[in-house]
Design a protein around this nucleic acid. Structure first.
Length: 910
RNA sequence: GGGCGGUUAGCUCAGCUGGUAGAGCACUGUGUUCACAUCGCAGGGGUCACUGGUUCAAGUCCAGUACCGCCCACCA
């Protein structure tokens, strides 16, 4: 006997183990060898991660698809794994070392530190995997991968070497986004532009051949800057070639304050006469634009910053090059060397003010680049880094989407993808970290670079080159985490080996992910997949929304508005959370989650549970060989047909990735069709005398319930699997677990006659209930029902469903004849239903109610009249639309006439 | 500066190819009915942001406006 409510906590664990023991998640099951494959690779969560709402959504949707296709008979591979997440993981372990007051990373040394990270990974890295299991994810865990596994590392090395040899990976010295806190380069994508309120300083640079006089503008040039501290690295002042104010100055020189460096005034179109003073200081080593200007004018690049963001002046030969020794220079070095960039800024401004070199200071709002991990201001820094020639790789990746070989859903994300891909910049892939794939490049004694997959090959290469064995040193840097992620769709399948999995499951069917990583990940997988395997990594890319809190804010730990999916699972069950996320996954931009919604769907699980309980109590168990098409009872034919509509709706919606529609379709079928009406309508049959009808109804109930469990299983796997087992025929076991059961087939059970008849019964009951409620008839009171003006068909229907009507509409007796006076009257199609309530009802109130009804129908008639009187409408609208309006008008007029009669009868009774 | 979304019931949102506005929650009334009070039944509540256009017909298509949000961009 089923409990009164569903207890998720008691069911979820054992059910999950059941699936695992049955090998239900495994790809390539023996029973599917001839089946079409269906593959999804999971967006690998960071190994440091714990399940947040975004993961919950992302993985719920994948699991819905995977379970759906598995039931449709496909050979499903859902490839799981985790990402080593270079920076994030290194930060976590470094923090842990600090908390435990252990030696820091540098004291430990690289090998020991990396060993400690691995150790951490073994101990704590599996957390999120277990959380995915709690959500019910049916990944093939036997195939779990990690981006730093030996196999995946081999793929990384091979791709790196191949791309290097193809000239698509190269080393370059240029400005990079440098994180002064993490002490590593980062890619453009890892930089966030943050708007800040700051200042714009207008500084005076004195002209070389003039004596500086603050009151004489002809003795200096004013430059405006938001970063005064970088003036130490200035190597020019640029003005626009057409700027009349400065034309005469081009070619002359100014003397850099605090330093004494003589720098030229150059003409360059980069300078915007509208901005600042129209003259701009050029610091090629510390600004991306200035870097380009510097290249055009062959300016020296003077780096004045150490990697940690402190000024580096003493012993900096670039800085002092060509500058005469002076007391001023010495003081500058003494005061500023080793200062943090922002402290130095203050000092420099102070000194400039003392010297009368600050013309004015304006408040100024501008954007400043911040590191997305460290949250500190990023410094453009001149360093040697490895780059991927993304522009070349992007071309085919753009092309395949244009030609529809890979399709984004929703389609408008393709624009975002194209825009970024068409303007793609070289991808900086080297990171000055220790945790990650160390770059397979070695340097000879003279700095010659050798790139190969392993040390043996590299040694041979070097020997060839030098004619003898030499000592090589390996490049210390590691690769951007996203480099290995980019290979995920094929590295997890065993590439570079030609495995049978690679052959069978690549390209994968769909990638399910959020729009925030289209650039980071989707685009790069496209580029790598196409380059390495010459085939797209996935056919479809389903982009889902981001989960936000109830107020629409992005959930983040710092805001404290995080809803923990595991807490929701504990409170309401995994099924309720999954159903909520599915139901809310309309193809918009974001999902605002609230616990009340989850609670509502928990109630849905309970509702289903109780429907099953009803089936159990009434011995509705599956009957072998039952053919739903053989049903004779109208109500049974009706629910069979309704189940067909639901099947079609769920199937079509899932095929189109319309998760919310699929969820909505099964929800309203189970609750509003099956529970609200079918189960109520069959109660008289089940307890009635007609044994054959009762038997048919029991069989149909079990059959429909089975069908509902199947349709619901992708969304609510736990409760459906549990009920599937419990509802098996007595003494028998199911042929398979629900997870492996076949998706229902369309049997053509739709039945218009049954729809019409049951629809009529439902309308009758609803109308009677409504009027009773409105007339304040006590719920418990049974009243007689007199039907007048009924057609033969209606009378037959009423008789067929008499018991049901009596029961559900709380009717004492049903009869046919003239409507008695002093009765409440309901017009239902051609018939009028009278509830003789003389003495109970307030005649005046009833008269008012009827008049209101008449008004309502009247205004509908007027509207329809106007429409039909419009010649253009009749002439131009499609025939069926016009016809529909005519019918509607005829119905409304008939109803109005009957209501008028009803009103007359009522008033006659007064 | 460019691009993309959003604006529909008190709240959170559906509404795909234009043809009588929907759901969940909340609210109101009600409930001696044998699956379910995590429930049943009934009900209130919307000039679909605004302006104009296309159309026989617009929440739905087009243009513009106003707010809100996101993404991209090197603006001293």
């Amino acid at each position: 006997m089923l409990d009164k409510t569903y207890q998720p906590a008691a069911v979820e664990g054992p059910t999950y183990r059941l699936w695992e023991e049955a090998g239900a998640f495994a790809a390539g099951r023996p029973d599917r060898t001839g089946a079409r494959p269906y593959a999804i690779v999971i967006p690998p969560p960071n190994v440091t991660g714990s399940l947040h709402m975004g993961h919950a959504l992302n993985n719920t949707l994948q699991d819905v698809l995977v379970r759906f296709e598995r039931m449709r008979g496909r050979d499903v591979l859902w490839q799981p794994g985790t990402d080593h997440a270079g920076i994030a993981t290194q930060i976590v372990v470094e923090r842990q070392l600090m908390e435990r007051q252990e030696p820091n990373r540098r004291d430990l040394g690289r090998d020991e530190f990396v060993r400690r990270v691995w150790q951490w990974k073994v101990e704590s890295g599996g957390l999120i995997i277990n959380q995915l299991k709690r959500l019910g994810c049916s990944c093939d865990w036997s195939r779990e991968r990690f981006t730093m596994d030996e196999g995946l590392s081999r793929a990384v090395r091979k791709v790196f070497v191949d791309l290097y040899r193809a000239g698509l990976i190269y080393k370059d010295k240029r400005l990079v986004n440098w994180d002064p806190k993490l002490l590593t380069a980062i890619s453009d994508l890892e930089v966030e532009q943050v708007e800040v309120k700051g200042h714009l300083w207008h500084l005076r640079y004195r002209l070389e051949d003039r004596v500086f006089d603050p009151s004489d503008p002809s003795t200096f040039v004013v430059v405006a800057t938001t970063r005064p501290e970088t003036l130490l690295g200035d190597t020019a002042v640029a003005v626009h070639p057409d700027d009349e104010r400065y034309k005469a100055l081009v070619g002359k020189h100014v003397i850099l304050p605090l330093v004494g460096r003589r720098i030229p005034i150059v003409a360059d179109e980069y300078s915007d006469p509208e901005k600042g003073s129209g003259a701009v200081k050029i610091t090629p080593a510390h600004d991306f634009n200035d870097f380009e200007v510097g290249r055009r004018h062959a300016l020296p690049m003077i780096n004045v910053l150490a990697p940690n963001g402190e000024l580096l002046l003493r012993g900096n030969s670039d800085f002092t090059q060509g500058v005469d020794q002076s007391a001023e220079l010495e003081q500058t070095i003494l005061e500023l060397n080793g200062l943090d960039r922002f402290i130095a800024r203050k000092k420099i401004v102070e000194r400039l003010e003392e010297a009368g070199l600050v013309e004015k200071i304006e408040p100024y709002v501008y954007t400043v680049p911040h590191g997305d991990r460290s949250n500190v201001i990023i410094e453009p820094l001149l360093t040697d880094q490895w780059y991927v020639d993304a522009k070349t790789l992007a071309k085919p990746a753009i092309d395949v989407v244009k030609r529809g070989r890979t399709v984004f859903v929703p389609k408008n994300w393709e624009n975002t993808y194209f825009h970024w891909m068409e303007n793609i910049q070289p991808w900086c892939i080297s990171r000055q970290l220790w945790w990650g794939h160390q770059i397979p490049a070695w340097y000879g004694p003279d700095g010659e670079v050798f790139v190969a997959e392993d040390e043996g090959q590299v040694t041979a290469l070097a020997k060839d080159h030098y004619g003898k064995s030499v000592a090589l040193t390996r490049d210390e840097d590691v690769l951007d985490t996203w480099f290995s992620s980019a290979l995920w769709p094929f590295s997890t399948l065993g590439w570079p080996d030609e495995t049978k999995e690679l052959k069978r499951y690549y390209p994968t069917d769909v990638l399910v992910t959020g729009f925030d990583i289209i650039f980071f990940w989707v685009a790069r997988m496209m580029m790598m997949g196409l380059h390495v395997l010459e085939e797209v990594p996935f056919r479809d890319v389903y982009i889902h929304a981001l989960v936000r809190d109830e107020k629409g804010q992005k959930m983040s730990k710092s805001k404290g508005n995080v809803i923990d999916p595991l807490e929701l699972i504990d409170a309401y069950g995994a099924d309720a959370l999954r159903f909520t996320l599915s139901a809310m996954a309309a193809q918009g931009r974001d999902i605002k989650l609230s616990a009340s919604r989850v609670e509502g769907y928990r109630n849905f699980a309970t509702k289903l549970w109780n429907a099953a309980r009803f089936a159990e109590i009434n011995a509705c168990t599956p009957v072998k060989g039952f053919d739903p098409a053989s049903a004779t009872q109208t109500i049974n034919r009706w629910i069979a047909g309704e189940s067909e509509y639901a099947l079609a709706a769920v199937t079509e919606a899932l095929e189109a990735y319309r998760f919310n529609e699929a969820a909505g379709a099964i929800y309203s079928f189970v609750w509003h069709k099956f529970c609200d009406w079918y189960l109520e309508l069959i109660k008289p049959i089940l307890s009635g005398a007609d044994q054959q009808a009762a038997a048919e109804t029991r069989a149909m109930t079990a059959w429909v319930l089975d069908r509902a469990l199947k349709l619901l299983h992708p969304f609510m796997p736990f409760v459906t699997e549990e009920l599937w087992a419990k509802l098996a025929a007595e003494g028998e076991e199911r042929e398979s677990l629900l997870i492996l059961a076949p998706w229902p087939k369309h049997l053509g059970l739709e039945n218009a006659a049954a729809d019409s008849e049951i629809g009529w019964v439902i309308r009758l009951i609803s109308e009677v209930r409504s009027v009773r409620s409105e007339m304040n008839v006590p719920a418990g009171a049974k009243v007689p029902l007199v039907i007048s003006g009924a057609s033969e068909q209606t009378a037959a229907r009423a008789k067929r469903h008499e018991e049901t009507i009596l029961r559900l509409a709380r009717i004492e007796t049903m009869s046919f004849g003239k409507a008695p006076s002093g009765a409440v009257q309901i017009v239902l199609d051609e018939a009028t239903l009278a509830l003789p309530l003389a003495g109970i009802i307030d005649v005046a109130a009833e008269s008012k109610r009827l008049k209101r009804e008449i008004d309502k129908v009247g205004s509908e008639i007027r509207q329809l009249d106007a429409k039909l009187a419009n010649e253009k409408f009749v002439a131009r609208a499609p025939e069926h639309v016009v016809e529909e309006q005519r019918e509607r008008k005829a119905d409304a007029e008939a109803t109005a006439a009957r209501l008028e009669q009803a009103l007359k009868r009522l008033e006659a009774a007064l």
